[in-house]
Computed example of a mutant assay.
Amino acid sequence: MSIRIHDLRPAPGSKTEKTRVGRGEASKGKTAGRGTKGTRARKGVPAGFEGGQMPLQIRLPKLKGFKPHNKVVFQVVNLDRLVELFPEGGQVGPEELIAKGVLNKNERVKVLGQGDLEGVKFDLKAHAFSASANEKVTAAGGTCESI
């Protein structure tokens, strides 16, 4: 006689009925497996509750201010740096600065007036100039052209 599929049964004690809690005193009815008293016995702990300590979302400061999404950012180049890179002067624009490795492609450049030109004449092309840079370049006989 061989065992057939309908003869197979689980091992004794391996399968148990689901315990139905909270259904009267006869079976885990009174506290329904939650123990006695306390927050967990009554409802449940809310998400983010830190035991009465000031919660993280209240401890952290609110974001203040405003950051414009279309802010124009300039890469700054001072006059003394231009004299270092181009001691003979001449025409200097974004293309020349990219070639020297001072500027990356698609970046805007602003020329600031730190340093002296020491008699070097520049014809500058840039997106912006500070007032002092403009004065120094024109005083040395050069020109400043905004792109």
Rank of each mutant, 00 (worst) to 15 (best):
A26V: 04
R81Y: 06
L8T: 04
L63K: 11
V120Q: 00
T31H: 10
G113I: 01
N134I: 04
K30Y: 13
V45Q: 13
V83W: 04
G142P: 11
N106K: 13
H69E: 14
K121V: 15
T19P: 15
G141A: 10
D7W: 09
A47V: 13
R40Q: 13
P46A: 12
K37F: 15
A11C: 05
R4N: 02
L56S: 06
G142Y: 09
C144G: 11
L97S: 01
V109E: 04
D123S: 10
K136Q: 07
V83D: 08
G51C: 10
P55N: 07
V92C: 01
L103R: 01
T39C: 14
M54W: 02
L112T: 02
E84T: 09
V72M: 04
N70A: 14
G29C: 05
L124C: 03
L79H: 00
V83Q: 03
P55L: 07
L56W: 07
K28I: 02
S132N: 01
S146D: 15
V77I: 11
L124S: 02
A11N: 08
Q91L: 03
I58D: 11
G33E: 08
L97G: 01
E84F: 14
T31M: 09
T16E: 14
N78P: 03
V137G: 12
D116E: 15
Q53L: 14
R4Y: 05
Q57T: 00
E84D: 14
Q114G: 04
G24A: 00
P68D: 14
R4G: 06
A47D: 13
I147T: 13
